[in-house]
């Protein structure tokens, strides 16, 4: 399915990118149909740019240092017409045509049926993710999106407060999330993996930290995962986790957060029903560990300055311990399905 880019392109790419490691968020390391098409376009454009730049530099060089005959040719108004009008007119017509054709093929991709529907709402400064469960019940999550490989996924994009922009470079272009409007984006992952996305429209405060991950998994795994994710949270098994649960409810966490199956039904903050199965907490670079959970609860303003969750510094270490145990226990699904 994936065709390898030509050798020259690969060489040029590796020279450009050098040893600059990571490609989880790179336009030039496509993992989906849309991003692959655009990456081809990008390389085409770079080639076009290199040729034109070379022509201009050569013309300047010849104008200064060239032989009298060449300089005489360059000095004519005809040279201005040929190089300044005719040449760009032809090349730009071709480029425009190709660009429009590419848009057309993106549109055609959007028309394919039986896609997976996922709604993502940009909020200051996190992502509310809602899947549509097997029987149509909404399944809420946050900051982590799971998608099946090889199936078109339609993202319904909205904004809760200010403008955000949904962007997963490895899968395709970005689309703005604008209050009062609903946008759609069709992406198709071609290989399993973890792709990073980030808010691309400045949204104030910790905009820089508003990232998320897209986990592309085999279609069967995805279906099984969604099946499990639909279920409410289980009652905690351990004593400490049960203490954590009552603390969670007593401290008022439920005013903002939902844990399905309990009385916590707040919708201001992320849904925590299966938080124990997520990869990170608060920001995507903070792995979900007991220690980081506690830090986010007590010291969130240092991790993500300006985020809307107050710091719960009144909680004592044993209480935090219990709370963390409870939250980590909230996973009816295990990560690898």
């Amino acid at each position: 399915m994936r065709r390898a880019p030509s050798l020259g392109v690969v060489l040029a790419g590796s020279v450009l990118l050098g040893s600059c490691g990571s490609d989880v968020q790179s336009v030039l390391a496509p993992g989906g149909i849309q991003s692959r098409q655009i990456a081809y376009l990008a390389w085409l454009l770079f080639g076009f740019g290199a040729v034109v730049l070379t022509i201009v530099i050569a013309a300047v060089w010849l104008a200064i240092r060239g032989s009298p005959r060449i300089r005489g040719l360059l000095a004519q108004e005809n040279a201005v017409i040929a190089l300044g009008i005719a040449f760009p007119a032809v090349t730009l017509t071709l480029l425009l045509g190709y660009g429009v054709w590419l848009m057309r093929s993106h549109l055609d991709l959007s028309h394919t049926r039986d896609a997976v529907d996922i709604e993502v709402v940009g909020e200051q400064w996190w992502w509310r993710v809602t899947y549509s469960g097997a029987d149509g019940t909404p399944v809420a999550s946050a900051n982590e999106i799971r998608i099946p490989v090889g199936m078109p996924v339609t993202f319904t994009l909205k904004a809760a407060d200010v403008i955000h922009s949904f962007w997963v470079p490895s899968l395709g272009g970005k689309v703005d999330m604008i209050p009062g409007r609903t946008a759609r984006l069709r992406l198709t992952a071609e290989r399993p993996g973890i792709y990073r996305g980030q808010c691309a429209e400045y949204c104030g405060g910790p905009h820089a930290l508003m990232a998320f991950e897209v986990v592309a998994m085999p279609a069967a795994d995805y279906a099984a995962w969604l099946q499990r994710a639909t279920r409410p949270a289980t009652t905690p098994a351990s004593e400490i986790a049960r203490r954590g649960q009552s603390l969670f409810l007593a401290t008022g966490c439920g005013a903002c957060h939902t844990v399905r199956g309990t009385s916590a039904a707040g919708t201001l903050g992320p849904d925590l029903t299966h938080i124990g199965a997520r990869r990170s907490i608060g920001i995507d670079t903070l792995p979900l560990t007991r220690e980081n959970l506690v830090r986010f609860i007590t010291d969130g303003q240092h991790i993500k300055p300006g985020n809307l969750m107050p710091e719960f510094r009144v909680l004592q270490p044993p209480e935090l311990e219990a709370l963390a145990s409870y939250l980590l226990s909230l996973k009816v699904t295990d990560r690898h399905g």
Binding site: S35, Q37, I38, A42, L45, L95, G99, K174
Partner: peptide, 15 residues
């Protein structure tokens, strides 16, 4: 000219 190509701009816009 590159960012005037709409699909390319979908990727590099705001970067």
């Amino acid at each position: 000219v590159m960012v005037a190509m709409v699909p390319f701009d979908w990727q590099v816009h705001d970067t």
